[in-house]
């Protein structure tokens, strides 16, 4: 069965890729272990000398990723969240009725309905 073969092939290849990526990650952890040990002095650089815990000083890696993403797509997010998904019923109804009007226009124009 071809579908089963495709599923299995993809599963195996993705599994191998995941294993490779994980091995690479483990290797990088092992190599950089001596550098990445957190000392008191290293932590203090992030804060202005005040006494904070290591946990507070560290930036989560998710912030690094999503910040880049959010900055790249800032105009899109501004318009999507600020103008469309406002939570106000009137704005929602505006977009929904716009969709209805566009749908009807498409049907009239492409469908060739007279009237």
């Amino acid at each position: 069965m071809s579908l089963l073969m495709v599923v299995l092939e993809t599963a195996v290849s993705m599994f191998i890729v995941t294993l490779l990526a994980y091995g690479l990650y483990l290797y990088s952890v092992k190599v950089t272990k001596s550098f990445s040990r957190k000392t008191r002095e290293k932590v203090l650089i992030y804060a202005c000398g005040e006494d904070i815990t290591e946990k507070e000083a560290l930036l989560a890696d998710r912030h690094l990723f999503t910040t880049i993403w959010n900055e790249v797509f800032k105009p899109l997010y501004d318009s999507l969240r600020g103008k469309v998904h406002t939570g106000i019923l009137n704005d929602w109804f505006f977009w929904m009725f716009l969709a209805l009007i566009i749908a009807y226009t498409i049907i009239i124009v492409l469908g060739g309905v007279s009237g």
Binding site: M96, A99, L100, A103, Y104, I107, I108, G111, G112, V113, S114, G115
Partner: peptide, 19 residues
Amino acid sequence: SIALGVGLFLALSIWAFTV
């Protein structure tokens, strides 16, 4: 003309079902 009736029916019911 069934075209007009069906066209309106389709536009309105597609909208309702997608809601």
